[in-house]
Design a protein around this nucleic acid. Structure first.
Lengths: 145, 145
DNA sequence: TCTTGTTAGTTACAAAATCAACCGTTAACA
DNA sequence: TGTTAACGGTTGATTTTGTAACTAACAAGA
């Protein structure tokens, strides 16, 4: 209970970033979980395919920095639920191209609109300049510059 | 591969925050893991006790927003490694007060100095005003205002 | 051709997180 | 009191993640 030293955990960036990330993901998580039974890994894959169209698992890995086993499992789940299909590349048979089905597209479009609204709700708590600055700094910290 | 729509995942705050949090925790994680075999839950408990002195598990939960089972298991591990001790509250026998041992204090002091340096390394990538603003916004998003 | 190495992706097993049920203790109140 | 609910904390079962080893396919050089 007693203050023992002056280190501020609330100022430590990795901690602060984690808390902010967790808190800010909570309500959105509930939506994709309740509505589609998805995990974080799964909506990420879904969004990448929704945004970029057909991609291989490898390309998704490069873009998300998720480990390949996570992607493999997320893809398997999404395929099982008929939200995406795979197509083997005949020129290089190690590769599989992943594409959303109509149902997958629909799920993506739905969740995308939720995400847009959700993001706007977060952003409106700050001035447009501050939010722009925040995004820029986060991209830099995430090495997504 | 084809651009299919204009939604920017790189602008979606929950995603961006997660990526930044993950990336910025990586090197620090390696240190507490390699040096003390700790998990994220464990260094968080250690830091809270190091900073605030004696706390109950419940108080740690309020401060960290970690689930009580996580705390229970982290505390058990830290006790097992003789980094903290428990003392039952005789007035309310449900409560246990947790305090770092000398070894726990030493681990805390060591990791705190690592954290300070680490944080400084992150912070110096931006101007002091920008970093202050970032911290403030993150605290707000984390509801730690 | 025949290694040897690398790559895309999967699988098996261990470690960790989550969730619900649980125990002992205290509080509320009929 | 006696009974019921709430609380602090733990445990066990299930789910999810992480780590390594694996398969199948391709590539490069001798």
């Amino acid at each position: 209970m007693t203050q023992k030293d002056d280190f501020q955990l609330q100022g430590f960036l990795p901690y602060l970033l984690n808390q902010a990330a967790e808190e800010s993901s909570l309500a959105f998580q509930r939506i994709y979980k309740d509505r589609y039974g998805m995990l974080r890994t799964e909506w990420r894959v879904l969004f990448h395919l929704g945004i970029y169209g057909t991609l291989s698992a490898k390309e998704i890995g490069e873009r998300t920095k998720m480990h390949k086993t996570k992607i493999s499992r997320a893809v398997a789940k999404l395929e099982e639920r008929r939200l995406l299909t795979r197509q083997r590349d005949e020129a290089d048979r190690r590769l599989e191209y992943l594409t959303l089905t109509a149902a997958g597209q629909a799920a993506y479009v739905d969740l995308r609109s939720v995400a847009k609204e959700y993001d706007a709700g977060l952003a409106e708590q700050f001035s447009p300049e501050d939010i722009a600055k925040l995004r820029q700094m986060l991209r830099h910290l995430a090495r997504m510059t």
